[in-house]
Amino acid sequence: MFEARLGQATILKKILDAIKDLLNEATFDCSDSGIQLQAMDNSHVSLVSLTLRSDGFDKFRCDRNLSMGMNLGSMAKILKCANNEDNVTMKAQDNADTVTIMFESANQEKVSDYEMKLMNLDQEHLGIPETDFSCVVRMPAMEFARICRDLAQFSESVVICCTKEGVKFSASGDVGTANIKLAQTGSVDKEEEAVIIEMQEPVTLTFACRYLNAFTKATPLSTQVQLSMCADVPLVVEYAIKDLGHIRYYLAPKIED
């Protein structure tokens, strides 16, 4: 028996919004430690890794490890039927070929349940090695989304250059060149507005804008985003999900032809 309950459907809606542009379907691996999802996008350029800890749920029970392959378009249709403040419960029997998603209004006067067929997905798991990153940047998630959106107008690629002075995002194309520099913040009143750079050595890497923009669909989940970079390894873009876990996106760098 698997049962996981969250106090607010809005969190699940935001999580789905954060992955459904990259993935058509995905397997949710459930165990007593929580729910894990790891999947590459269709073109195998990026990888999504979602971790939801069991202690972050209002109720969590998973008697046997369970892999639930879900069509994310179908899941989105079901989640559209929830109000943001509804409780949401996901339930499945061991070895089941369906999952039930139930919504309850705060006053318990409306209860709806949706049974969704599960899929057998031929999923590959990738082992992600520990990396000592050359640069780790923490910055407001909204600012990162804004920069990615703005620079995508100028080029398919964005160059991220990180030094101890700050981080520079550049794009160059037919229109010309765009550069956006962010300096590390001195003192800020609010932690969520800070730009913090931890640098071992400077790094310059090039990434495809369209993937960065897809990652920023996670912005509503978190006030801050963390970018971890190292020469010739994938960029890690991480959004914390408060008290529940995190979503990490890995993006392969572009190299010169």
């Binding site: 590959e124 798991h125 082992g127 495809a208 190299i255």
Partner: peptide, 12 residues
């Protein structure tokens, strides 16, 4: 040139 993400990580 865009590299694939699976060229960086080992298949388990």
């Amino acid at each position: 040139m865009q590299r694939g993400i699976d060229t960086f990580f080992k298949r388990l």
